[in-house]
């Protein structure tokens, strides 16, 4: 048995319509594996929020998922502006999204809080001016 099914997606910056490909592909794979519905849902939400964040804030990046029998590990890497104050960014309703993103209905300041809520583990590694890496683990309960 492979130790994990690994999936990797390039997320285009400024492509709001195309965002969500990574999360729906991972979701499809999880369903084919017969993973618990609750894990499928939480993974899809975390992955989607992460993808959208990369589109809105970081001009895209790379979304990766490793599917293991009991969990999914997600890694989202970008070379965007970084997050100056991670604690502030984690607050519900706080957002630095552009006018354009807000006009499309994004930028409600719920992305990171939602990821935190649905992931079992989450770490944010961010350096202003260099980029951000978000890692999440979603476990079968």
């Amino acid at each position: 048995m492979p130790d994990a099914i690994r999936m990797r997606f390039d997320v285009d910056g400024d492509d709001f319509a195309g965002a969500g490909v990574a999360s729906s592909e991972v979701k499809r794979a999880l369903k084919k594996l017969g993973m618990p519905p609750d894990l499928v849902k939480r993974t899809a939400i975390c992955m989607y929020e992460g993808e959208i964040n990369m589109v809105i804030h970081a001009n895209g990046g790379v979304a990766m998922a490793a599917i293991r029998p009991d969990r999914v590990e997600i890694e989202l890497c970008d070379r965007g502006p970084g997050i100056a104050d991670v604690e502030l960014a984690m607050q519900e309703g706080y957002s630095t999204a552009s006018e354009q993103a807000r006009n499309l209905g994004f930028g409600a300041g719920m992305g990171l809080p939602n990821m935190k809520r649905y992931a079992d583990e989450m770490t944010i590694d961010s350096r202003p001016g260099e980029g951000t890496t978000v890692r999440m683990v979603i476990r079968a309960r």
Partner: peptide
């Protein structure tokens, strides 16, 4: 749509 009832087999 599930590939196999056994998770390990499905992953394979």
């Amino acid at each position: 749509f599930v590939l196999d009832e056994d998770r390990a087999a499905a992953m394979e």
